[in-house]
Nucleic acid binder design. Structure first.
Length: 427
RNA sequence: GGACGGGUGGCAGAGUGGUCGAAUGCACCGGUCUUGAAAACCGGCGUGCCGCAAGGUACCGGGGGUUCGAAUCCCUCCCCGUCCGCCA
């Protein structure tokens, strides 16, 4: 959420930002309602004050008659207050709906426009390979080497679920180790998080549990939801907390399973492991002071590059355009890995994303920091970035590693955990 | 899952219907004393919102209720502890 005072003082700017980001929010209407609500708030407080004065005088009343008369007066004042309050609540509810729909502000360098306007910032170290043989996609490779059981997954949980098998199962664990080791070395606190979270936490991060549009699986009869990312649990971990400023920036990385209904998504682009209902993800999360978040954002992106360079996977980094940004993000960098088997002759496919959410999530989740010796508290900045989303990384590894003899070379960095250099072949 | 006991400021902990945003201690900040430090003493010290300010208002785990008035009484949910049951 944005700072309300900022919206009131910069309503045109906020309206333009909403438009750029493809959000229909009537900022002028919000300002009108907010001003009305504030006026009513003052009236309510004045009536409360009067009623409080009356209440306090009752204890000191000299006789029963006076007490009764004061009680009547108090009752009358509280009734007036309640009426004003009801009016205020009604207006505040309408204002709140608009307020909650407003996306975060946007970094000045972010390209304005839709997906086509996204800007490529850089490329990874590894070059896109030229294959001297017919390229297979990861589904075919997995079938050849018995790595993924899609039919079994469908039988027990439905389309979009799968069993990782043989080297693929070992690859998942290897990728977890690989990412966690690197991040721990960078000073991140490693965590394994709950896979379920309360609705309130999901909403604070910016997800909408339940309802017709939801991407979230929910537990029946309980306020629990399967998480779509560890961003939810890691960000939620500090909800309602006040952090000492000296402790910032705070860097944590967490492994969770991620569950997504992916309603409406289908087709060749989501074949195989690309768009699934469950996968494992290692996520980076950071809490920072406001003036640290931009550097942290670049740092998280650098780490993602380091991770994929270390796997010898070609990729490009994209500065996501305004129309493609989610509500909480101030700026978002995506890593798109080269997937040789994707599309007609290979395509880039999103494997990670790093977002700077500035104080947008912190305001919703009430995550603040306090500077020693200074009065009051301020909202921290939050950032999140994918370290490794296993299923997508798996696609890139299998497809980029395939050889003319049908074997698949395992990236050197993972070999010690998988226990071999290649999958299949004569070696 | 069942029974009981709890949830109060950074921490500990008093407060069971009004004079309570809340005693006291510790921690923290400023000062006196001291060559310096410690100790001692003096003063300050929660958060949000409205307001230039004075001040007002709200907040004692969350939500709702009773009452002129709720940290205090009632309902409900969440969490923590102890015991019992079950169990990787």
């Amino acid at each position: 959420m944005l700072d309300k005072r900022f919206i009131l003082e910069n309503s045109e700017l906020v309206q333009v930002n909403c438009t750029n980001r493809g959000v229909k929010a009537d900022v002028a209407r919000f300002v009108e309602l907010e001003n009305q609500s504030r006026q009513l708030q003052q009236d309510v407080e004045e009536l409360s004050r009067q009623a409080n004065v009356v209440s306090k005088s009752i204890g000191k009343a000299k006789d029963e008659a006076e007490r009764e008369q004061r009680k009547d007066e108090g009752r009358r004042l509280r009734e007036q207050k309640d009426a004003q309050q009801a009016e205020m609540d009604r207006i505040a509810a309408e204002a709140g709906a608009i307020y909650r729909s407003m996306p975060n502000l946007t970094h000045g360098d972010v390209p304005v426009g839709d997906e086509a306007c996204c800007v490529e910032l850089r490329r990874g170290k590894s070059q896109v390979r030229k294959f001297g043989f017919p390229v297979l996609d990861h589904v075919e490779l997995a079938q050849q080497h018995d790595l993924v059981d899609f039919e079994g997954g469908a039988r027990i949980a439905g389309n979009g679920f799968y069993f990782l098998k043989n080297e693929a199962a070992l690859l998942e664990l290897a990728l977890q180790q690989y990412a966690m080791q690197l991040l721990v070395g960078e000073g991140f606190t490693p965590m394994i998080t709950p896979d379920l979270a309360r609705g309130e936490i999901l909403q604070g991060i910016g997800f909408i549990p339940r309802g017709p549009e939801t991407q979230i699986y929910s537990i029946e009869n309980q306020d629990l939801n399967l998480v779509a990312t560890a961003e939810i649990t890691l960000g939620g971990l500090y909800s309602g907390q006040v952090i000492d400023a000296e402790q910032l920036p705070l860097k944590i990385c967490g492994i969770s399973h991620c569950f997504r209904t992916e309603a409406g998504a289908a087709g060749r682009a989501s074949r195989g492991l690309y768009r699934v209902h469950q996968f494992t993800k290692i996520e980076m999360f950071a809490f920072t002071l406001p003036d640290q978040s931009e550097d942290m954002h670049n740092y998280l992106c650098d780490l993602e590059c380091q991770l994929f360079d270390g796997l010898d996977i070609p990729y490009r980094v994209i500065d996501t355009a305004t129309g493609d940004l989610g509500g909480p993000a101030y700026r978002k960098f995506d890593l798109e890995a080269w997937m040789p088997g994707r599309g007609k002759s290979g395509e880039f496919g999103e494997v990670t994303s790093a977002s700077n959410c500035t104080d947008y999530q912190a305001r919703r989740l009430n995550i603040r920091y306090k500077v020693k010796g200074e009065k009051g508290t301020k909202f921290a900045h939050t950032l999140n970035g994918t370290a490794i989303a296993i299923s997508r990384a798996m696609i890139a590894i299998l497809e980029n590693g395939q050889q003319a003899d049908g074997s698949i070379v395992i990236p050197e960095a993972l070999q010690k955990w998988v226990g071999k250099e290649r999958i299949g072949g004569t070696a």
